[in-house]
Every structure is written in C-alpha cells, then in structure tokens.
Design a protein around this nucleic acid. Structure first.
Length: 103
DNA sequence: CTGTTGACAGTAC
DNA sequence: CGTACTGCCAACA
C-alpha cells in the first residue's frame, strides 16, 4: 500500500472504509483516497470494479444525494436495493439526506 | 432548476 | 511515443 498498484485500488480501499448504513460522496471518497479534486476518477474506478469484489460501491453517491448511475440500469436498482436493505431511505424527493446518512 | 468550468487517469487514434 | 477526447463528478455563476 505504500505503493499501490493503481489509483483504483486506493479508491476501492477508501470506499471499503464506509461504514454500513452510511453513504459517502464521490468527492469525499476521492479526498480519502488522496485525490483532492479526483471525484471523476472515483466514478471510473467504481465502473472498473470487478463483479466479484466485496467493495460496498453502492454506498457511494454523488454530492446531490442522488445515485450517479443512470436510472433503469441493473446496477442502479441493485444500489437502491442494497441501500434500502441497510436502512438508507431516500426522502420524498427521491434524494438521500447526506446530513443524516453522510459520514 | 440549468449551464459552464476545472481537473486528470484511461482510452482511442 | 504523442495528441485528443472522454467520463457512475464538484463547484460556481
């Protein structure tokens, strides 16, 4: 880890640090991974995440409290399903309250 | 709410 | 090997 194989690995580790029942934003994960302005890098890293990984990628949402994945995608439904299963409930506007679930 | 700008690793060419 | 373009975003106007 003193010399990570790739940025993706560092990003994944930062995502893995998110506690259950909580959510984090791309910016926060990027900051935790050592990328102060690398929010977009986080998105690409999650997209490159292997399907058999144990990384809680679904706990990562954008700064607007919304899922960044295009609605209708299988991954988007899975993300909502997993979040609901951990007690993360969106408000009436369909947005997750970062003031409550945010770390 | 929409639009534009910033920043930077992958990827394509 | 270099150049251009892209992208599960954020911050600002």
């Amino acid at each position: 880890m003193t010399d990570p194989a790739s940025l993706n690995e560092r990003i994944w580790l930062a995502v893995a640090a998110i506690p259950a029942g909580r959510v984090s934003t791309y910016g926060a994960v990027a900051n935790a991974a050592g990328l102060p302005r690398g929010a977009r890098r986080v998105g690409r890293a999650l997209g490159a995440l292997p399907p058999d990984s144990q990384i809680p990628w679904y706990r990562v949402i954008n700064a607007q409290g919304r899922i960044a994945i295009p609605q209708g995608s299988k991954a988007a439904r899975e993300q909502w399903d997993r979040l609901l299963g951990e007690g993360v409930i969106p408000d009436a506007n369909g947005r997750i309250d970062l003031r409550r679930y945010g770390v």
